[in-house]
C-alpha cells in the first residue's frame, strides 16, 4: 500500500514542485490564520491584551458563552438582529439574483438585432465595484435628495410622503436591492452559457408533443440548467453571508452604523474587531459562522447528490 503510494509520489514528483508556492502561500495566509483564529477565539483579546496576544489570558469558552448564552454580555447587543438580517438578506439575494438572472438570460437568449450589445450592457453593474455600489445606492436612497424618492413622489406620484430608506425596517430592502442589482448580471452570464448548451432538438421534440412553453421550461430548461444554478446557489449563499462592502459603504459612506435592520454579521464582526478591538469575540463569531456555513454547504451537497442520483 505504502509502496504503491510512494511510487506514485515519485512518479509525479514534479507536481509537488508545481504546487509548492501555492502551498507556502496558503500555509501562511489560509491554514495558519484559521488555526490561529480558532485559538484566538478562546482568548480574552481586548485593546489592552492585543499587543501581547500570545500571552493573553486563555478563557476557554468565555467568548462563546458571551456570544451565545450570557444574557448580560454587551457583545450580544444587536447580534440577533445581525444574524436575522443576514439570513433574510442571503436568501432573498441568492434567489433574487438567480431568478432575475434566469429571466434576463431567457430574454437575451433569443435572436434579435443588437444582441451582443444588449448582453454586454446588461453585464455593466457587475463591473461596478461593490464599494461604489454602496456609495451610489446610499446616495440614491437619500430621503430628500435621492433619485428613488424623487421618482416615487415627484415624478410618478406613487407615494404621498417620501419614505425613509436608510432608517427603520426599509433598510433591509435598501441593502438587498443594490446587492441583487450588482450580482444578477453574473447569474445571467452563467445561465446564458448553460442555456446555449441545451440541444435545440429537445425543444423541437417537445413542440411536436404539443408541450406548452411553461411545461417546456420545467421539464427541459430547468433540469438541464441544474449544474449552473446549483453552483450559483452554493456560491450565492457563501458570498452573501459574508457580504460586507455594499452595506458598510452605504451607511454614512463607511463611517456610520447600519442600524438594527441593516447590520449584517460581517459588519458586526468588523465593528467588534477593528473598531472596539474585541478580537476574541470577533473570531468567536467568525468560527461559529464558519461552522454554520460548513453544515449548510454539506447539507446542500448531500441534497444535490441525492437529487443527482434520483435523476440518473
Amino acid at each position: 500500500m505504502f509502496k504503491k503510494w510512494w511510487k506514485r509520489a515519485v512518479k509525479y514528483r514534479v507536481a509537488y514542485l508545481f504546487i509548492l508556492p501555492t502551498i507556502i502561500g496558503m500555509l501562511i495566509l489560509h491554514v495558519t490564520p484559521i488555526f490561529q483564529g480558532i485559538y484566538m477565539s478562546f482568548l480574552d483579546l481586548s485593546q489592552f491584551t492585543l499587543n501581547q496576544y500570545l500571552a493573553a489570558p486563555f478563557v476557554w469558552f468565555q467568548n462563546y458563552y458571551d456570544v451565545l448564552i450570557n444574557p448580560n454580555s454587551p457583545v450580544r447587543i444587536g447580534l440577533f438582529e445581525a444574524a436575522r438580517n443576514t439570513a433574510i438578506y442571503t436568501i432573498v439575494v441568492t434567489f433574487g439574483t438567480l431568478w432575475i438572472g434566469l429571466l434576463a438570460a431567457l430574454m437575451v437568449n433569443r435572436e434579435f438585432k443588437g444582441k451582443g450589445l444588449v448582453r454586454t450592457l446588461f453585464l455593466f453593474p457587475w463591473v461596478v465595484p461593490t464599494y461604489v455600489t454602496g456609495i451610489l445606492w446610499g446616495f440614491m436612497w437619500q430621503k430628500e435628495v435621492g433619485i428613488i424618492n424623487i421618482l416615487l413622489k415627484d415624478v410618478f406620484h406613487i407615494v404621498a410622503e417620501k419614505p425613509f430608506w436608510l432608517i427603520g425596517p426599509n433598510t433591509l430592502w435598501a441593502i438587498i436591492i443594490p446587492t441583487i442589482w450588482r450580482y444578477w448580471p453574473f447569474s445571467m452570464l452563467l445561465l446564458l452559457a448553460g442555456l446555449q448548451q441545451i440541444p435545440e432538438e429537445l425543444y423541437e421534440a417537445a413542440d411536436i408533443d404539443g408541450a406548452s412553453p411553461w411545461r417546456k421550461f420545467w421539464m427541459i430548461t430547468w433540469p438541464l440548467l441544474k449544474p449552473v444554478w446549483a453552483i450559483l446557489i452554493l456560491f450565492g449563499l457563501i458570498y452573501n453571508v459574508y457580504a460586507f462592502n455594499i452595506v458598510i459603504m452605504m451607511f454614512g459612506f463607511g463611517a456610520g452604523f447600519p442600524g438594527e435592520w441593516g447590520d449584517l454579521l460581517m459588519t458586526n464582526i468588523f465593528r467588534n474587531s477593528f473598531m472596539q478591538w474585541n478580537f476574541g469575540v470577533g473570531t468567536a463569531i467568525s468560527v461559529l459562522l464558519m461552522i454554520t456555513m460548513i453544515i449548510i454547504v454539506n447539507v446542500w451537497f448531500i441534497y444535490y447528490r441525492k437529487a443527482e442520483e434520483s435523476t440518473k
Binding site: A15, F18, P33, I34, M266, M290
Partner: peptide, 29 residues
C-alpha cells in the same frame, strides 16, 4: 494532469478555503 498522492485533499482544501469568511483570515493576519 498529475494524479499525485495528496491531490484529492489539496483540492478539498482549496474548496474549503472559499467557505471561510475573509475576516477569519484577516484578524490573525
Amino acid at each position: 494532469r498529475f494524479d499525485f498522492p495528496g491531490s484529492k485533499s489539496f483540492s478539498m482544501i482549496i474548496l474549503a478555503t472559499q467557505m471561510v469568511p475573509g475576516i477569519m483570515f484577516l484578524i490573525p493576519t
